[in-house]
């Protein structure tokens, strides 16, 4: 049963981010893969990922939130404010075009930019942790800008504490 749910979640995310030609790149290893529940249940992780959108993207070497990113985070904040059973970990990621340590620090900046925005939109700071993966967990694995653009991301990973 768990496998089926995970497979479904991978499919959703693949559609969402327009998984290009990288060939069978399942989400795994990092925490930003696999989610629980049905996309039809508006209080589920799967719904959050598929309909609200769990990630925002950044420009090269930037942690500034674009207008598009702020819109996405407004949606996340609205959802989180009405689904108080969830805490979140914001994962910051970087593309491979940088040194390891710098990318860890850059990912942390990105995660924190997302966190600060969500707090500003009313989500309690005690519900939000941050984490940087630097360049360790690319979601797209080609060495082209179209992949890098998907990898420079902040991902809001839900953790249901309601049970």
């Amino acid at each position: 049963m768990k496998f089926i749910i995970k497979a479904w979640a991978v499919l959703c995310v693949t559609v969402l981010i327009g998984c290009s030609d990288t060939g069978g790149n399942t989400l795994g290893g990092g925490a930003d893969g696999g989610s629980q529940g049905s996309v039809d249940d508006p209080t589920s992780e799967a719904y959050f990922e598929a309909s609200v959108g769990d990630r925002v993207f950044f420009a090269v070497d930037e942690s500034v939130l674009s207008a598009q990113a702020r819109d996405a985070l407004d949606g996340q904040a609205t959802w989180l404010n009405s689904n108080a059973d969830y805490t979140v970990i914001i994962e910051g990621h970087a593309d491979e075009q940088g040194t390891r340590e710098y990318n860890l620090a850059l990912g942390a900046r990105r995660a924190n930019a997302v966190r600060e925005y969500l707090i500003g939109a009313g989500v309690g700071g005690d519900r939000i942790q941050t984490l940087s993966y630097g360049k360790e967990r690319p979601v797209e694995i080609c060495s082209l800008e179209r992949c890098y653009a998907q990898n420079r991301r902040g991902v809001t990973v839900l953790n249901n504490i309601g049970f």
Binding site: E101, L104, A105, R109, N112, E116, S132
Partner: peptide
């Protein structure tokens, strides 16, 4: 809690460690 530590390296005397600490997005 709430921090990230990374990039550690020994001092030449082996008694201390220099490293990076991230808090609130700043390293």
């Amino acid at each position: 809690a709430g921090t990230m530590s990374f990039a550690p390296r020994f001092a030449p005397n082996g008694k201390s460690v220099v490293y990076s600490l991230e808090q609130g997005g700043n390293t």
